[in-house]
Simulated assay, not measured.
Amino acid sequence: MISTNVSSIQANQVMLNANANNVANVNTDGFRPTDVRMTNGANSSVEANLRLADDTGSAKSQTDLAKEIPDQIVGVSVAAVNVEAIKTQDEMMGTLLDIKA
């Protein structure tokens, strides 16, 4: 179960990195942002799939801050939830080992 939480944290880190790059290039003419899709991988893992956003033909940056900022909030929140889940699993495992000993 911990491996699922770890893969989710890693996938969200990929998403946050792409998101940060998109925001950093909001004023770069002709910039096409990276779009991230989360998918289920093997063994209940979470994977981040990257692709360039569709080209709108704009000479300006195609980064949409109305999408990027909420995505940052979601990414940080998902990471925090997964960290808490890992901590709880670790505490439960320690308690089970104490009971057995």
Rank of each mutant, 00 (worst) to 15 (best):
T34V: 14
Q62N: 06
L16Q: 01
I86H: 00
N27S: 10
E47H: 14
N27I: 14
Q62K: 06
D55Q: 04
I69P: 03
I69H: 10
N82R: 02
L97G: 06
S45C: 09
F31N: 03
N25W: 06
E84F: 11
N12T: 04
A85K: 09
N17W: 01
F31V: 03
D54K: 11
A59E: 14
V78M: 09
D35M: 07
G41W: 02
N43R: 13
P33F: 00
T4S: 14
V83W: 11
G75N: 01
V23L: 06
S77K: 14
V83M: 14
S45E: 13
E84H: 15
N40G: 11
A59Q: 13
M93D: 11
K87G: 12
A18T: 00
S77F: 08
T34F: 00
A101F: 05
D90H: 06
N17M: 04
V81A: 09
V74L: 11
Q10A: 08
T39I: 14
A42H: 12
P70K: 05
M93Q: 11
L65E: 05
L65C: 09
D55F: 15
V76E: 14
Q62R: 02
T63M: 08
A18C: 09
A18D: 02
V74H: 09
S61E: 04
S61I: 00
L96H: 06
T95G: 02
E68G: 05
N82Q: 05
P33G: 01
L97W: 13
S8I: 01
A24W: 07
D29C: 08
M38G: 07
A53Y: 00
N22C: 00
D35S: 07
N82D: 03
A80E: 09
M93T: 05
F31P: 02
S8K: 00
Q10L: 02
L97P: 04
N17L: 06
S45A: 11
V46S: 03
K87F: 10
V23I: 09
E47D: 15
R37A: 14
V14S: 03
L50R: 14
T28H: 02
S77P: 03
N19V: 02
I86Q: 00
D90Y: 11
S8T: 05
A42C: 15
A59D: 15
A66Y: 12
P33E: 04
A24E: 07
Q10S: 05
N49Y: 09
S3T: 05
E91W: 07
I9E: 02
T28N: 05
D64H: 01
S44R: 15
D29Y: 11
M15A: 08
V6M: 13
V46P: 00
M15T: 05
G30M: 07
I99K: 07
Q62S: 07
S7Y: 00
A11E: 01
Q10P: 03
T28R: 07
I99G: 08
S77G: 15
L97N: 08
E68A: 11
V26D: 01
S58Y: 00
D35C: 12
I9K: 01
N25S: 12
A48Q: 08
F31E: 03
V81P: 06
S44Y: 14
